[in-house]
């Protein structure tokens, strides 16, 4: 049980690095953005996991509930999710402009065109 309590963090680590791998290793720009989304999701998972308390409920105070999970990480992640979609959209916009200019969204081809 003690070890299972860390499982969420392990998944966080694996997911984080899976996303990171897509960012560094894949030459396709859209794939890089997908990797970035995955990376962000992993961070969200880490924060929300930290806020959980054994036997608690969601921090909405109704009758009968006394113990609540921490609202603070939830607030931070709530806003971060909306910011992440906005920045992803900005990234996709950049990719579309790059496609217009270079006719490609593969990183090595773009760099090849830049070298005289």
């Amino acid at each position: 049980m003690d070890i299972l309590g860390l499982y969420h963090y392990w998944i966080f680590a694996v997911l984080l690095m899976t996303g990171f791998f897509a960012i560094v290793a894949k030459p396709n720009l859209v794939k890089k953005l997908i990797g970035l989304s995955l990376f962000q999701s992993a961070v969200f998972l880490c924060y929300i996991t930290m806020g959980k308390i054994e036997g608690g409920t969601a921090p909405i105070m109704g009758e009968g509930a006394e113990l609540f999970s921490s609202p603070l990480p939830q607030v931070l992640i709530l806003t971060a999710i909306v910011v992440s979609i906005s920045t992803t959209a900005l990234g996709l916009g950049l990719v579309l402009r790059i496609k217009d200019e270079y006719g490609s969204i593969e990183e090595d081809e773009i760099q090849g065109q830049d070298q005289p």
């Binding site: 969420h8 989304s37 999701s41 969200f44 929300i48 996991t49 806020g51 959980k52 308390i53 608690g56 409920t57 969601a58 921090p59 909405i60 609540f68 999970s69 990480p73 939830q74 992640i77 709530l78 999710i81 909306v82 979609i85």
Partner: peptide, 15 residues
Amino acid sequence: LLDAADVALTEAAIG
């Protein structure tokens, strides 16, 4: 499951 109903709602709608 981690007691974050608000965040789950946001993630489902946006993600």
